[in-house]
């Protein structure tokens, strides 16, 4: 397995992953300019090019929300779903295109490179410590956690704003004996929702690092790199599916809070 270090900076005990911050900024810019250029020169006649694409994506998100809520209610959350879908989709794919790697021969306090790490790398026949500057932002646990907490706290806020009594009642539904079970269900969402996205993308990137030496040491025998190519293809598919699932679950959690299942209301 190719050894590599993630560039990390610790400020006041908080760890900042520089590679994730860099790619997050790049993904945000890509999403911003994609939407910006797709919405210039819009026409209500036959749409062309990027406008076609954007209309298709918006219809897709609207379809997800429309399955769970009335179209009038669903329309409010299409913007949130579209933002999440585009951001996560592009985040998942961006780590697959390539990598930027620097090799450090001298210890660096800023990046946390110690002289022991350099000696250990040299013992393995490398020039120095390899630092990877490119990855999917969603392969860092903090990014999926932030996105999931945003969605879950927003859904709880929507439920509270709708009716405090109805919100409290949802925990003792159908009977107060179910209270512990309902609490565990709500709390487990905070773990399972972000870990689903993080785990898929992180495991994909780890396997890429594992398979990478097959192409480096394989020489002219291109057959050895077939698993790597197959895994990249599968990762593209997984990235798209996970973006879809994250958006779908966002709409499911929001619809739980804003749609009344009680026929009396």
């Amino acid at each position: 397995m190719a050894e590599h270090l993630v560039p990390r900076v610790t400020i006041f005990g908080m760890v900042f992953d520089l590679a994730a911050i860099l790619t997050m900024a790049i993904v945000s810019l890509i999403v911003f300019f994609l939407i910006y250029f797709a919405t210039r020169n819009m026409t209500s006649r036959t749409p062309q090019g990027l406008q076609n694409f954007l209309e298709w994506v918006i219809d897709f998100v609207r379809g997800i929300a429309g399955q769970l809520m009335e179209s009038k209610v669903a329309e409010r959350y299409v913007g949130l779903g579209l933002t999440l879908f585009l951001y996560i989709f592009i985040s998942n794919q961006i780590g697959l295109f390539g990598n930027i790697v620097t090799v450090h021969e001298h210890p660096s306090a800023l990046l946390g490179i110690t002289s022991q790490a350099i000696e250990a790398a040299k013992a393995h026949g490398q020039q120095g410590v390899t630092v990877s500057w490119w990855k999917s932002p969603t392969a860092t646990i903090s990014v999926p956690l932030a996105l999931a907490f945003l969605v879950l706290f927003y859904s709880h806020w929507l439920g509270l704003r709708r009716s405090v009594r109805g919100y409290a009642k949802s925990y003792v539904n159908p009977h107060w004996l179910m209270l512990p079970l309902n609490l565990v269900e709500e709390l487990s969402k905070f773990l399972s929702f972000p870990l689903r996205l993080y785990g898929n993308i992180f495991a994909g990137e780890v396997l890429l690092w594992v398979l990478l030496p097959t192409i480096v040491h394989g020489g002219i025998s291109a057959v050895l790199s077939v698993p790597l190519l197959a895994w990249i293809g599968y990762s593209i598919f997984v990235g798209a599916i996970q973006a879809f699932i994250f958006t779908m679950l966002t709409m499911v959690y929001i619809s739980h809070r804003v749609v009344s299942h009680d026929p009396a209301h």
Partner: peptide, 9 residues
């Protein structure tokens, strides 16, 4: 696909 994604996790 939703079910597969949920199980996949």
């Amino acid at each position: 696909f939703l079910g597969v994604g949920l199980v996949d996790a």
